[in-house]
Amino acid sequence: MALSDADVQKQIKHMMAFIEQEANEKAEEIDAKAEEEFNIEKGRLVQTQRLKIMEYYEKKEKQIEQQKKIQMSNLMNQARLKVLKARDDMISEMLNEARQRLCNVAKDPARYASLLDGLILQGLYQLLEAKVTIRCRKQDVQMIQASIQRNNPVYKAAVKCSIEVRIDQDNSIPPDVSGGVEIYNANGKIKVANTLESRLELMAQQMMPEIRVALFGVNPNRKFLD
């Protein structure tokens, strides 16, 4: 039985509606899939960027922390150097004050004469020469002569040898020296510096550890003691 035109049109419309519905459903499916893939890719990109940002700031934080440590170390070193310089300055001031007081030693004749005896005798023992030359301040020549007379028998008794001691009056020790003597061997190549200043310097070097402890206390970082 042949279909009428109305039935054909009706079937065509029905097929078109079906195709349109299929197309809409397919489009919705594609949109949903695209939305899902978009969200997945967006999430991946966001996560990737978030990790990159976190890594960047972690790196920056480590750099800042390292810079802080370096800066703190530099500041501590600068502070330590300032403390050490202040301590050295204090010791230098103390030694300068001691040097200024040396001039008072020679003002006491009895004390100074006894000191000269010790300085001369010590120099003679260090050289152990048959002939020596002594240089001193011009104002000390008479005291040195008297000291030589006192020390000659003491030296001879100790080393069992005689000694010839000459005072070099042509070459005195500098006038800014507070006192004491310089003793030379016969050819002048060996010198024992026993001026008050040289003895102070020697004593300061030998006693520097004790001086530092007395002024600043025991160093807590020092592991070994002499």
Rank of each mutant, 00 (worst) to 15 (best):
M1Q: 11
M1T: 07
M1G: 01
D7V: 12
V8K: 14
H14R: 08
M15F: 05
M15D: 15
M16N: 01
A17Q: 12
F18N: 12
A23N: 10
A23S: 13
E25R: 11
D31T: 05
A32I: 10
A34M: 11
E35A: 13
E36P: 14
E36K: 15
I40R: 14
R44K: 13
L45Y: 04
V46N: 09
Q49W: 05
R50K: 13
R50W: 13
L51F: 06
M54K: 14
E55V: 02
K59Y: 06
K59S: 13
E61W: 03
K62G: 06
Q63D: 09
I64G: 00
E65P: 00
E65V: 10
Q66V: 05
Q66K: 10
Q67V: 03
Q67R: 03
Q67G: 01
K68W: 13
K68N: 11
I70Q: 13
M72A: 05
L75T: 11
M76V: 03
Q78P: 04
A79R: 08
K82R: 12
V83H: 04
L84Y: 14
R87Y: 08
R87Q: 10
R87S: 02
D88H: 03
D89F: 09
M90G: 07
I91T: 05
I91P: 05
S92V: 08
S92E: 14
S92P: 09
E97K: 14
E97L: 08
A98K: 00
L102S: 04
L102Y: 02
C103N: 11
N104E: 15
N104H: 14
V105G: 01
D108K: 11
P109W: 01
P109Q: 03
P109E: 15
P109N: 08
R111K: 13
Y112R: 09
Y112G: 04
A113I: 10
L116I: 15
L116R: 03
D117I: 01
D117Y: 02
G118Q: 12
I120R: 00
I120Q: 01
L121T: 13
Y125R: 01
Y125F: 15
Q126K: 07
L128A: 05
I134E: 05
R135C: 04
C136V: 11
C136Q: 10
R137G: 07
Q139Y: 06
D140E: 02
D140M: 05
D140K: 00
A146G: 00
S147Q: 07
S147W: 00
I148H: 01
R150S: 12
N152F: 04
P153C: 03
A157R: 15
A157D: 15
A158L: 11
K160Y: 10
K160M: 14
E164Q: 05
I167Q: 02
D168N: 05
S172D: 13
S172I: 10
S172G: 00
I173A: 00
P174V: 00
P174Y: 01
P175K: 08
V177Q: 13
G180L: 07
E182W: 00
E182M: 03
I183W: 02
Y184T: 06
A186T: 03
N187P: 12
N187W: 07
N187M: 06
K189N: 13
K191I: 07
V192F: 09
A193R: 08
N194G: 02
T195A: 07
L196W: 02
L196T: 04
R199H: 09
E201G: 13
A204E: 09
M208D: 14
M208V: 08
E210L: 04
E210D: 06
I211K: 04
A214M: 11
F216V: 08
G217R: 09
N221C: 15
F224L: 10
F224T: 08
L225A: 06
L225N: 04
